[in-house]
Every structure is written in C-alpha cells, then in structure tokens.
C-alpha cells in the first residue's frame, strides 16, 4: 500500500484547487450522495447538439471525490455525449482495476492508485455516476 500512488501531485492539486467548481445556469444538474460518508456532488452539464458545451460541479467530499469531479469537468468539455460515456466506462475500468484504454484518459490516469484502496473507489466514481445518470436521462434536480 503506497500513499504516494493514491495521492499523486495532480490529485492533490485538483483537490486543493478544484477547477470549474460552481453552479451552471440552464444546465442539466445531477446531484448524488455517497450515503456511507456524506460526500455530495452536483454535476452541471450544458449540451449543445449532442456535445458537452460546458461542465462544472459543486459539492463537498474527500480529496479523491473532489479531484475526480474537477478532472471530469475538464475532460468531458467538448466531447460528444457518446464519447463522454466511452470515457466514463474507461475511467470506471481503470479505478476498478480492470484493463482500461488509458490513451484517452490523460490526467485521469493519476486516479488509478485508487485500485489499491477498495474503500475509496466509490469516492472516485461519485461524479462519474452523476455524469452517466445525466447522459442517460435520469436527472435529479438539486
């Protein structure tokens, strides 16, 4: 068990200085809770012609869930919804310790250390669960 694998520099950077942490007007909003720890993420997406025009989030959580949400908002901006779903599936495989196509994941690969910490996988996936729920059309008003 190596803490440095989990808390890589890029993760600490995103958790301490989260990107796009604000509400988004006229956006699709999905709020998800992690009932075991009280973490809470609201993901905002604006979609234009099937492409993610903008993404942001609000919420409270541990460094892993905040960094993951912050990186998500950067990663999905400009992606067609279908590609955002592909990215989400690749990320899910990565943190769950399955073979994943890391070529498209970029900085998100830094969260792979979560694999060694089973209790923290759900922290890394909270924002991504919100993304998939939003795209699949099960919105949950904040």
């Amino acid at each position: 068990m190596n803490l440095q694998d989990l808390y890589r520099h890029v993760i600490l950077d995103h958790s301490q200085r989260p990107r796009n942490r604000h509400a988004l007007a006229n956006a699709l909003a999905v709020r998800l809770l992690n009932p075991t720890c009280g973490d809470e993420v609201t993901l905002y997406l604006t979609v234009e012609q099937g492409v993610v025009a903008d993404a942001s989030f609000e919420g409270v959580g541990c460094s892993i869930s905040i960094a993951s949400a912050s990186m998500l908002t950067e990663a999905v901006r400009g992606l067609p919804l279908s590609e955002a779903l592909v990215l989400s599936r690749a990320f899910r495989r990565l943190v769950q310790g399955e073979d994943a196509d890391v070529t498209k994941l970029g900085d998100l690969e830094a969260l792979s250390g979560v694999r060694q910490f089973p209790a923290r996988i759900k922290c890394a996936l909270l924002a991504w669960n919100a993304l998939e729920q939003g795209i699949r059309g099960e919105p949950d008003e904040p």
């Binding site: 068990m1 803490l3 808390y7 973490d39 959580g61 541990c62 460094s63 892993i64 905040i66 910490f117």
Partner: peptide, 13 residues
C-alpha cells in the same frame, strides 16, 4: 480542512 476519509486512509496506511 483535510477530509476525514483522507485522514482515515493515511492512518490506515
């Protein structure tokens, strides 16, 4: 402002 989960993970290690 360290999240309790992060503290618990460091302590776990």
């Amino acid at each position: 402002d360290i999240h309790p989960h992060d503290i618990a993970t460091v302590l776990d290690s």
